[in-house]
Design a protein around this nucleic acid. Structure first.
Lengths: 181, 181
DNA sequence: AGTTTACCCTATCGGTAATAGGAAGTCAAG
DNA sequence: CTTGACTTCCTATTACCGATAGGGTAAACT
């Protein structure tokens, strides 16, 4: 079960998340395609297991980040770690954060893991003085925008994501200024 | 030919761009699936024709925008028009600006249309005082980030895109400040 | 008249996810 | 020890997908 999911990640890394076929996955695991239905009731269920697994990997990764006392620095650290996690496996980022799979909707249990991740980041934003939902939305959208542009146009490089820290400063400063007045 | 592409856009609007099948398209047009190969040598070629068509629609739309004398205002106007174009047809935005179709790569001729669009916007950025490539990249990525977040989480609403004008001001001001010193 | 060209067809191929139905093994209760 | 439930795997098949082979028809050109 866990081995099958790990095998599926391997195929996804080679051929993209949409390139994972049940025949190919079964072949890689050493069984026939219908036997996979003993473990997943549909291909969507396989994606769902991978979605949950990927979010657990991300939670574990964020847990290893040593956060500074300084709230602004801590926010940057968590977003930099998030960005590194996204860039190191495009197929995983595709499944977790983009809507590339027609018909795939995470189950509520799996989606709850994704909300956990978001909530942890939102807490750090609040600590750093970003309190309005609109400002939180902007920082989230900008981080995702940089990652998307990086993966789409220059995977492996840093032309876009190198601006992350500067833009966080810019937006956090602006959010604090506007929430004071 | 143009009628088939228009018909394909109709199906894409109903079922998403990945939901367009050659069987379904042929049925909608009133012919059999193999007959489509008289017009497109592959499904990718159909996507390519739609990609070119969509970019022509966008160019036409941007041409109708009455640009202010003020360069900053003109930049905002073009990006607001771009955003409105993106939001009014998610399937079209998906094909033109996201990488959702495994294996689809626009032909050079079609891609040139997309570069035309980007170049027009870049010119307005330069006029507004944004001259460094890094700053241009940031504004492009932020616009796309807001649109993606809007379409993914709240299609039809404005929770994310309503921040567009404010963020443009913020980034353009910052770009000008940094390029002066 | 003969040929080319445009457009359409049926039939088929190999790939996909999914289902039906059966065979073999394990394990626990009677 | 045996019976029955459960697990895990299989072959065979279905429906749909993009793509190809090969043939038919009618208009247009030479």
């Amino acid at each position: 079960m866990a081995g099958i999911v790990a095998c599926a990640w391997g195929l996804a890394r080679e051929q993209g998340i949409a390139g994972v076929s049940l025949h190919g996955l079964a072949r890689a695991v050493g069984i026939r395609q219908p036997s996979l239905y003993e473990y997943f009731e549909s291909k969507s269920a396989l994606y769902d297991a991978m979605f949950a697994d990927g979010n657990r990997q991300l939670i574990e990764r964020l847990n290893t980040v040593k956060l500074s006392r300084d709230h602004r620095a801590a926010l940057k650290q968590i977003l930099v770690a998030f960005t590194a996690f996204a860039l190191e496996d495009p197929a995983r980022y595709e499944l977790l954060f983009q809507r590339h799979l027609p018909g795939f909707i995470p189950s509520p249990e799996s989606y709850a893991l994704a909300e956990d991740v978001l909530n942890r980041i939102v807490v750090l934003m609040r600590d750093a003085g970003v309190i309005h939902q609109g400002d939180i939305d902007c920082i989230v959208a900008i981080t995702a925008g940089l990652i998307d542009a990086q993966l789409s146009n220059n995977p492996g490089g840093n032309r876009w994501v190198r601006h992350l820290n500067r833009l966080i400063d810019l937006l956090v400063d602006d959010a604090i200024t506007r929430s004071k007045q």
